[in-house]
Structure formats: C-alpha cells, structure tokens
Amino acid sequence: MKVHLWGELGFYGPAKRGRFEFPITHEMRVTDALRLIGVPEADVAVLGVNGEVVPLDDPTIVVADRDRIDCYPATSGG
C-alpha cells in the first residue's frame, strides 16, 4: 500500500519519512491500517483513499495493498 503522511504526520512515518510503501497482506478497515502504520488517528484531519476524501469514522471503508492513502493533519496558521 502506498502511504503519504502529509505535514506533521510525517513525523510518524518510518525514519520520519512522509511517503513510503507499507505492505499489507489482506484487506482491512482504513482506520486499522492507520493503527498498524502508527499514525495517531486523532491527529488525522483529512483522510484520502486513492485520491478521494473519505470520512474518518466510516467503518465500511477498507483498503488493500493496491491502494494509496493520504493523511493530512489539522494544519493551523502560516
């Protein structure tokens, strides 16, 4: 699975990389995938699956190894 942790969420990626491959062997709920990766769900403000924004609390959304997920933080101020 392709993962892109944007902004401060990159802090939780392997070696603090925001963009990486994360192999998964079976389909799973996207929130479970986030837990496996180690991204704190509470800090994800926007979640994208294959380029589409999806609700964070929708248990029906599942991802497989072929998918791409994008996690955006609650960015604030500039």
């Binding site: 944007w6 401060e8 802090f11 939780y12 403000a45 933080p73 500039g78």
Partner: peptide, 21 residues
C-alpha cells in the same frame, strides 16, 4: 510533530493539506 514539520518544510508545507481540506 508540529515543530518537526516546521523544521522540515516550513510554512510552504501547509499548502497541500489545506487544499485537501
């Protein structure tokens, strides 16, 4: 995480996330 991100990218790192939101 927040100061790490500012150190890594600075404020231009905000653009994509704000666009997605």
């Amino acid at each position: 995480p927040q100061s790490w991100d500012l150190r890594t990218k600075g404020t231009p790192g905000l653009t994509d996330g704000l666009n997605a939101a």
